[in-house]
């Protein structure tokens, strides 16, 4: 790039558009990489919970869900430390990061609350007198986060995938739940969510190929 090249107005506008576009592509592509990692982490953990719960019949394997942040954060941290160029944040990457962090905080908070409710409901939470069904709530939150991500990156496939995972996931949850007494199979809905998240990451990487 030359600093003294005479530019026409048209060339200047084209340069601005191209530079901003290229810069945005590299930044959003990085977000896609992290979504892929978290999608794989969610798929692995949900499959592990499903297999262990199904084979042992012990519901306690659900505590493995709390390993999710570690399984997702460790590779994310390694990836970040290996980045040769520190990529800045722009509006889209900040929005994506905010959406999924909010989802994470809500999902973990609801999970902790539900576990406390299940363990000590009668002594601590009787006055609240509410029943909570954790999985559909998290599926709904996930679907919303996915759809809003699709809106942020202007991608219809991601928006549709969010609706399918959120709304379709809840419907499937009750269908699968009615099919068996223990409802272990409903864990596989999170495997589906993990695949959707990983695919979202792949879509973002392809869409923003430099």
């Amino acid at each position: 790039m030359e600093q003294n090249k005479e530019m026409t107005a048209q060339e200047s506008l084209a340069l601005i558009a191209e530079t901003v576009n290229n810069s945005r592509k590299s930044i959003v592509k990085r977000s896609g990489k992290y979504m892929l990692v978290w999608g794989i982490a969610l798929t692995i953990v949900s499959l592990l919970v499903f297999i262990l719960w199904k084979s042992t019949g012990k519901e306690a394997w659900n505590y493995l869900w709390f390993a999710m942040p570690v399984i997702g954060l460790v590779p994310s941290y390694i990836m970040k430390s290996k980045e040769t160029t520190h990529l800045p944040d722009n509006t889209v990457s900040r929005m994506l990061s905010g959406i999924w962090r909010t989802f994470g905080v809500f999902a973990v908070s609801i999970s902790v609350f539900c576990i406390l409710y299940a363990q000590f409901g009668s002594s601590f939470f009787t006055s609240l007198a509410i029943g909570v069904s954790l999985s559909p709530m998290i599926l709904l939150l996930f679907g919303m986060a996915e759809t809003i991500s699709g809106v942020a990156v202007k991608n219809t496939s991601i928006k549709v995938a969010g609706v399918i995972t959120g709304v379709g996931g809840i419907i499937l949850y009750y269908i699968l739940g009615n099919m068996s007494e223990d409802g272990i199979e409903t864990t596989l809905l999170f495997t589906l969510a993990g695949i959707v998240l990983a695919l979202t990451g792949v879509i973002l990487q392809i869409q923003n190929k430099e």
Binding site: M1, E2, N4, K5, S12, V20, T85
Partner: peptide, 27 residues
Amino acid sequence: HSELRLAVMSILADVTSADFTFLKKQT
């Protein structure tokens, strides 16, 4: 109205801040 300075300003107008290596790579 200079190619490189305009490119740098276009990038910086879109991000919170950018380090030198990123600007070098993009421009």
